[in-house]
Design a protein around this nucleic acid. Structure first.
Lengths: 140, 140
DNA sequence: CCTACATCCTCTAGCGACTAGAGGTGCAAG
DNA sequence: CTTGCACCTCTAGTCGCTAGAGGATGTAGG
């Protein structure tokens, strides 16, 4: 069994070196064994776990949600209801975020289109920001 | 001229009290005059400025961008090219963010649909996270 | 064996944009 | 006069890293 250094683990998982150490420090990743010279030596399973974490982070899951998902993964005989609930909650969040970004996009487009490239006192960018009543959406 | 307390300013602008003080501390809002008892006393113009800031924050502009927008607002004879550039950059960011959230939404939907509500070892939520190769999108 | 250099180690501090809490003061109503 | 809320300052905490200091280790070439 060849030793996997932290740099190698980082490369293989796509998680940066300081971030790997950070995940260890918050207990998301078990502390690996060490070499004679005190350097971390990872197992292939650690790479999988790091990849799992990276992917979940890319999907916008928070660290605490990932912690729950990882304990579920560690015990495959449990019900997946929690995992399902976490993913569903995240889906609702994402849908909400998309809706609000769409409204935002419309508002920004109005601002940019309305800007006659003249002076500030004719500029819709400033104007729209100054007066919320002119928004295409009214509330958050 | 009636004095506007920080609580009143907060209610009228929609910015929270500690956040108003925070904006003052970072120089986004000029320090208002004080009452005899050392309490902040705001002007109507401050409410406008706070509303402007809140709205810009809701649109996702960063504090430094808002600082620039505010200096533009303060001098209406300037060219609005900077304001336009800031809004355009923000629009590009928002469009990018919407695209990636749509991909994300699709991926989360696959996960949630695939979950048979049984045990974790049959759960697509965990499975998809564990194996990035199964994603509907491949890269970020 | 020595040196150069990349990589590793720990530790602390910083980022953005607030938010929370401690411990104290001001002010208006009853 | 007392109750109670709103205000004051200050520090520290949040999240998820990221950067940097200052030193040790590991490896490849000469």
């Amino acid at each position: 069994m060849k030793k996997i250094t932290i740099g190698e683990a980082a490369r293989r998982s796509g998680v940066k070196v300081p971030t790997v150490r950070y995940y260890e420090s918050i207990g998301l990743l078990a502390a690996p064994s060490r070499s004679e010279g005190n350097q971390r030596s990872f197992e292939p399973a650690d790479i999988n776990r790091l990849t799992f974490i990276r992917h979940a982070r890319e999907l916008g899951f928070e660290i605490e949600a990932i912690r729950t998902l990882l304990t579920l993964q560690d015990d495959p005989h449990q019900s997946c209801a929690s995992a399902d609930a976490i993913a569903k909650a995240r889906l609702v969040e994402v849908e909400q975020r998309i809706r609000s970004l769409m409204a935002l996009k419309a508002e920004l487009e109005t601002m940019v289109e309305g800007c006659g490239h003249g002076r500030v006192d004719q500029c819709r960018v400033i104007e729209v920001l100054a007066d919320h009543g002119q928004c295409t959406h009214s509330h958050h």
